[in-house]
């Protein structure tokens, strides 16, 4: 049984993957089975999400049990999770109470984290020269400065046209060329990863 199950998993994965791939190229022939399989995958993903949330609750329940100073975060998380589940369960996912929870807690916390992110990025940019003191770091920082200065009107001066022209050129020529090079590598890597799973030599499903 221990050997049969992984082989069965692999066979199911290879057959399903092949049908879904063929569905992209020949939607007329394989489109139906492709959408059915994707539909099943979406249902399974929803159950996986529930299991993930259950896992999150268990992790924090265990943390409360351990005697550490950081378990106050876990208490807050479990309490807010319980209250949110109750409120959304009663009010419904788009009910007024659910939206109140979302708009009053989730949105402000995420926006404040975005603000922290902006500060972190500025700090990291300033620290880059000590982290990697190379010529290309200087080039990177000069480019960032040029793009920033070319993107916003300056105090008392307004927009500087030459800087805007340089910004446009940087964004449209070298940046696009570099981005396409990176995306080419990412696309080939994704194809290779998908094919390894499709032929069953890579089995992330525990096969």
């Amino acid at each position: 049984m221990k050997k049969i199950l992984p082989i069965t998993n692999a066979i199911i994965a290879v057959i399903s993957g092949s049908f879904i791939l063929l569905g992209y190229f020949f939607p007329g022939v394989f489109g139906g089975i492709q959408s059915t399989l994707i539909g099943w995958a979406i249902i399974l993903a929803a159950f996986a999400l529930l299991l993930g949330i259950f896992n999150l609750a268990i992790v924090h329940w265990k943390k409360i049990g351990s005697e550490k100073s950081s378990n106050i975060n876990s208490i807050v998380l479990l309490t807010s999770m319980f209250i949110t589940i109750v409120i959304v369960g009663i009010s419904g996912p788009t009910g007024s109470w659910s939206l109140w929870v979302f708009n009053s807690f989730q949105v402000p916390v995420e926006v404040s984290l975005l603000a922290v992110l902006a500060v972190v990025l500025v700090y990291a940019g300033a620290r880059l020269l000590t982290r990697r003191p190379k010529w290309y770091t200087i080039l990177f920082l000069v480019t960032v400065l040029l793009v920033l200065l070319g993107s916003v009107p300056l105090f008392l001066i307004g927009e500087i046209t030459p800087l805007s022209i340089v910004r446009d050129w940087l964004a449209q020529v070298p940046a696009i060329a570099g981005a396409r090079g990176l995306l080419l590598g990412v696309a080939l890597g994704t194809v290779a990863t998908g094919l390894r799973i499709l032929i069953g030599v890579d089995r992330p499903y525990g096969g």
Partner: peptide, 14 residues
């Protein structure tokens, strides 16, 4: 992501 969490548990188990 829930699916990635399940897959990472499965990877560790196997």
């Amino acid at each position: 992501d829930g699916v990635i969490t399940i897959l990472s548990q499965d990877t560790l188990r196997s």
